[in-house]
Design a protein around this nucleic acid. Structure first.
Lengths: 232, 232
DNA sequence: TGAATAGTGTCTGTTAGACATTATCCA
DNA sequence: TGGATAATGTCTAACAGACACTATTCA
């Protein structure tokens, strides 16, 4: 069996479900394709593995994100592999799907500078009829984030570096899709070693009582805090 | 950008961490390689994606397992992708790692009939110095199974179709690696809809009181039961 | 002071874990 | 009958969820 025989025409690629929170709803970033197949249609950002540039599929994803959005350090996780002869009209393909979480402000800030094609944010609940099998990939990613949110600190990466407990509460409610009692959420969050106060800084909005700002403790900025008995 | 330029020499493959329980310890099945690279060395079973035969990477895995062990219907899950220019001396490679769970009896029964090379069962805690990055793949798989066992029914797939609560208890203890109170385990398992009695059948061993045999309810034979608050 | 949000205190039902007890088999 | 395992019952501390309450800001 020669090497060439073993993989004559296989396409190795990555696709990224770039998620953010907008209007208290989980949204996915879609990009307009500038070439065939499906030119002009909105799809997930993705691209082929470049063996000369990339040292791993994670590198491929970072390169794609950098080129299409300018985003450099998102929360990034591998989701799973989608593969088969029919998912891409160009041939048998294998796509390593990832999901990335970024705060909305970062996405808006980095969108224009690069100007590489139009981007759109779509509520994940309203995603449908995307080319390839991107519908399924989005659904899987949303479900993964929802499920991990119920027992880990993952959803905090949808907020900017500094945020109030109320904002974090809102994010969790939005992602898991159900009401969470504020008082109990507050207690559980503060019993965990997850957050630290940003001393002397408060968030002031409208004419209400200002709220203390918090940030993730350094040890959880690149790694999840996983609770045994859940956050919600 | 032509298609050929985008993936000139990429190797797309799968590797399988085939796990079973032996002597109350999690073991992985290793196979002796019959060709270069690393001929004669013990590694995970794996193989290249065959676009003409396989409709997905899951098909590739099933084909590899069937050819090397005769096993047809194991519990099978995708683990994650390992990739890079250096993990395989043949070039830039992308391996979709999977793990499979089978009862020991099934592994022993199906091993000889095919006779395709020697197989060895190694305690996952003692795996070291495997070729490629197979050490890491085994460690990841073991950790995944351990972690999922603490809140799901996954470990039941390490037992034959019919088993006693004691045996299930033993499996869980072995996989999560810590003592689990038998009385509480019994209560939690029976409060779940996971098992059904095999009416009239008991397991008789030694001169002790015989134990009732159970099996997974049909709905959980191909799907996990996930408990909110854990099994252990 | 009233409206709105920030933040705290308390009660209660559920459950995980520890452990005692009973049941059933065979030599 | 005694030894071994199977299976059940009971107590307690911890905790999730519900909700009442206080605090602080600005118009």
């Amino acid at each position: 069996m020669s090497l060439v025989d073993s993989r004559p025409n296989l396409l190795a690629m990555v696709d990224v479900v770039l998620l953010t929170l907008k209007d208290q709803r989980l949204h996915v970033a879609l990009f307009q394709r500038d070439r065939e197949p499906f030119a002009g249609r909105w799809t997930l950002p993705g691209g082929f593995v470049h063996e000369d540039e990339d040292d791993s599929v994670a590198d491929t994803v970072m390169r794609v994100l950098r080129q299409k959005t300018g985003i450099v350090h998102p929360w990034l996780e591998q989701l799973c592999v989608f593969s088969g002869p029919n998912r891409d009209p160009r041939g048998w393909s294998l796509s390593v799907a990832h999901f990335a979480l970024v705060p909305l402000v970062e996405l808006q800030a980095s969108q224009d500078p690069c100007g590489s094609g139009a981007m759109r944010l779509v509520d994940v609940a309203e995603v449908k009829s995307l080319p390839f099998d991107h519908d399924r990939i989005v659904a899987e990613a949303a479900e993964r984030v929802r499920s991990k949110s119920s027992y880990s600190s993952i959803a905090a990466h949808l907020l900017p570096d500094e945020f109030t407990i109320s904002q974090l509460h809102g994010v969790y409610q939005a992602v898991v899709g159900q009401e969470i009692n504020m008082a109990n959420f507050r207690r559980k969050i503060s019993e965990m070693p997850l957050l630290e106060e940003v001393k002397g800084k408060v968030h002031h909005e409208g004419r209400m009582k200002p709220a203390q700002l918090f940030r993730l403790r350094p040890e959880y900025r690149r790694q999840l805090l996983v609770r045994q008995r859940g956050l919600a």
